[in-house]
Amino acid sequence: MPEKVVEVENLVKRYKTVTAVDGITFDVYQGEIFSLVGPNGAGKTTTVEILECLRTPTSGSAKVLGFDLLNEEMEIKKRIGVMPQEFNAFERLTVKENVELIAKIYNVKPETKQVLEELGLWEARNRRFHKLSGGMQRRVGVCMALISDPDLLFLDEPTTGLDPHARRECWEVIRTLKKLGKTVFLTSHYMDEVEQLSDRAGVIVNGKLIVTDTVHDLISQHGGGIKVSVKGKKTKEAEKILQRFTENVFHDTDIVTGKFQTRQEASKALAQLYQMGNGYRIEIIEPNMDDVFARLAGHKVDERGELL
């Protein structure tokens, strides 16, 4: 088992009237991309900001990189890289100036060129921050988080508000971070993002962590299984075959769907379905994080992160 870099124990953050984080416990391991996923207001940012030493928990404890959250704040701050939500830098400073300022604060000799090149910003190094596109600004934010060569990076909703192209660019950046051997702690309300990027994920709703597991296990256990649909003339025949392998069979006018918990079960049914001949079409729908979330939270989340 890899080393734990974040250990959270029964963390609570209470404001006057609301409990933003309601007793959550989880670990993050060395070298992985861990995602905290949930709708807006679920407590993702509060949790991350507590771990970044930007907020004080009401109760509970946590260790970050082996240091105690409450007593060794400076040790933690020195070793982590942070990109806050709705992040901003000095607007009239250039990309390079902003990145090197952070290096100065961390008292490290900046490998500015290397970092900027890794994130495709070397050409734009002399452009002022406020003149950059949203996607480029996020990349500057990642550079600023990365310049101190931290062991652990916190990226709070790094792609919120970006267009699809910029989001994909940002994903590439995050994958690069993993290749560099960094542990990445991510928050997001985009289920596809979490699925694409993370090794492990925790689903958080209303300040409570519902489940934490590898993305693979989350989907296989909570995704609601694999759907196999048959469309066309032979739905009657297909229904009979499907019923041999699963109890969950639904029949519409010209479509029949069977749900399977595992791929093995589905593949047995599929093998027989393919022997029916012609005149129909088979569709296999693998579950995704959207399904996981919908099943666990009882709701879906829209593009803006709101619960539906």
């Binding site: 930007l54 400076m74 992040f87 901003n88």
Partner: peptide
Amino acid sequence: NGTVKRLAATP
């Protein structure tokens, strides 16, 4: 605009 928060997250 969050610049202060960015700086507060550094040492």
